[in-house]
Computed example of a mutant assay.
Amino acid sequence: MNLRVEQINKAFGKNDVLKDVSFGIQKGEILSLTGESGCGKSTLLRIISGLEFPDSGNILLEGEDITHWKPEKRQFGFVFQNLSLFPHLDVKENIFYALKKKDQTSSKLNELLEMTGLQGLHKRFPHQLSGGQQQRVALARALAINPRLLILDEPFSSLDELLKTKIREEIFDLLRKLEITTILVSHQASDAFLIADRLVVMRNGEIQQEGTPSDVYMNPVSPYVSEFFGASVIIKGRNTEKDTVRTSFGELNFKSDRSDDIQLFMRPENILISNENDYNLSGTVIRKEFKGPHDVLRIGNESTDEFISLETERCPVGEGQTIYLKVPEDQIQVFK
């Protein structure tokens, strides 16, 4: 199964929701559409599933244009954000809702119940199930049609953190076992990192970056992407003629192809700290917060109002004291 999304545009009134969106997904791949709320993810999913039509652009399935096919013809399984279970139907009836009578066999039901960990619950109604069990029913219903593509729209948003972790791992294991081609929509980086083979990061209806989770995390193309996928440190800098970058925290021996004012991006875990004057950047610990296994530092300096926040393991430097920092050159990225 090969799906191509090509130059999709969609507007509601004067609001351009999707702008020239293009990407592909291969058989067995798990792709995550991610980005902040309102960036166009759910609208794009509705277009892929046939619940909406684009103003322009095409959806291609195995090279065939399915842009205007009805949802049932596409044979895509869909797990909605609110699950959309029917309260007056029991588990069995919910799972079999989209199947023809001849396909509603006992063996099919048992297979789906075992696959999703719902054995013995087929006669219960949604209100008699836990949040995690309801999630499994919605997944079993989507799998019942033997979908060409499985679409998960914010599937974990209604679960508490502990349950979400458990259900997420179960779904990940199941998708891997069944090798189901899947599109996951989530605004949580942790969901995308655990489940996805590849990420498509969206903002304001446009694709910002596409790549593997590790590549997007380590090599973001913009401050937005860097901050969306975890804690980041961005320091303002200015190139000098000596292949160094001057910042308000000191100078870095770092050569950048970009001129004048730049922004230096780095992940906190790559920053080394010391209470001795053996690193080239320094600042004052304005605030130090205890966060269980980590300390969170707010570091500033006297010359400007610029500061950085840094999560680190136990820090030997207290509030009001000077802290020294070092970042390996190969762990620094430059943004204009």
Rank of each mutant, 00 (worst) to 15 (best):
residue 8 I to T: 08
residue 194 L to F: 01
residue 77 G to Q: 06
residue 173 D to K: 15
residue 82 N to F: 01
residue 36 E to N: 04
residue 224 Y to M: 09
residue 209 Q to L: 06
residue 216 V to C: 09
residue 116 T to N: 03
residue 141 R to D: 03
residue 283 G to M: 06
residue 235 I to S: 05
residue 139 L to E: 02
residue 221 V to T: 14
residue 217 Y to H: 12
residue 36 E to W: 08
residue 9 N to F: 13
residue 97 Y to V: 07
residue 224 Y to G: 09
residue 100 K to H: 06
residue 140 A to V: 06
residue 60 L to S: 00
residue 117 G to W: 02
residue 97 Y to W: 00
residue 315 C to E: 10
residue 129 L to H: 12
residue 335 F to H: 05
residue 244 T to H: 09
residue 218 M to Y: 15
residue 64 E to I: 12
residue 149 L to D: 07
residue 144 A to N: 04
residue 179 E to D: 13
residue 121 L to H: 07
residue 169 E to V: 09
residue 152 L to F: 07
residue 143 L to I: 00
residue 13 G to M: 03
residue 61 L to K: 07
residue 186 S to P: 01
residue 75 Q to R: 14
residue 158 S to M: 12
residue 302 E to D: 15
residue 260 D to V: 00
residue 239 N to C: 05
residue 286 I to E: 15
residue 181 T to E: 14
residue 138 A to D: 03
residue 102 K to P: 03
residue 227 E to C: 14
residue 318 G to E: 15
residue 40 G to V: 02
residue 40 G to Q: 05
residue 156 F to A: 00
residue 43 T to Q: 14
residue 218 M to K: 15
residue 320 G to I: 00
residue 270 N to Q: 14
residue 100 K to M: 00
residue 221 V to R: 11
residue 87 P to A: 10
residue 278 D to F: 11
residue 146 N to Y: 04
residue 28 G to M: 03
residue 182 T to G: 13
residue 275 N to I: 08
residue 52 E to Q: 12
residue 192 A to N: 05
residue 254 F to W: 04
residue 292 G to K: 02
residue 305 D to V: 13
residue 155 P to D: 04
residue 293 P to D: 06
residue 266 M to H: 11
residue 21 V to E: 00
residue 131 G to L: 03
residue 297 L to C: 10
residue 331 Q to A: 12
residue 160 D to R: 03
residue 93 E to D: 14
residue 80 F to W: 11
residue 155 P to E: 01
residue 54 P to Y: 02
residue 263 Q to W: 10
residue 230 G to A: 11
residue 180 I to A: 11
residue 327 V to K: 12
residue 230 G to N: 10
residue 336 K to W: 11
residue 265 F to I: 12
residue 324 Y to R: 09
residue 237 G to L: 01
residue 71 P to N: 04
residue 299 I to S: 11
residue 307 F to G: 09
residue 323 I to R: 00
residue 2 N to P: 01
residue 22 S to F: 00
residue 283 G to H: 05
residue 114 E to M: 12
residue 273 I to N: 11
residue 28 G to I: 05
residue 275 N to T: 13
residue 238 R to Q: 11
residue 169 E to C: 07
residue 104 Q to M: 02
residue 195 I to T: 06
residue 30 I to Y: 10
residue 64 E to K: 11
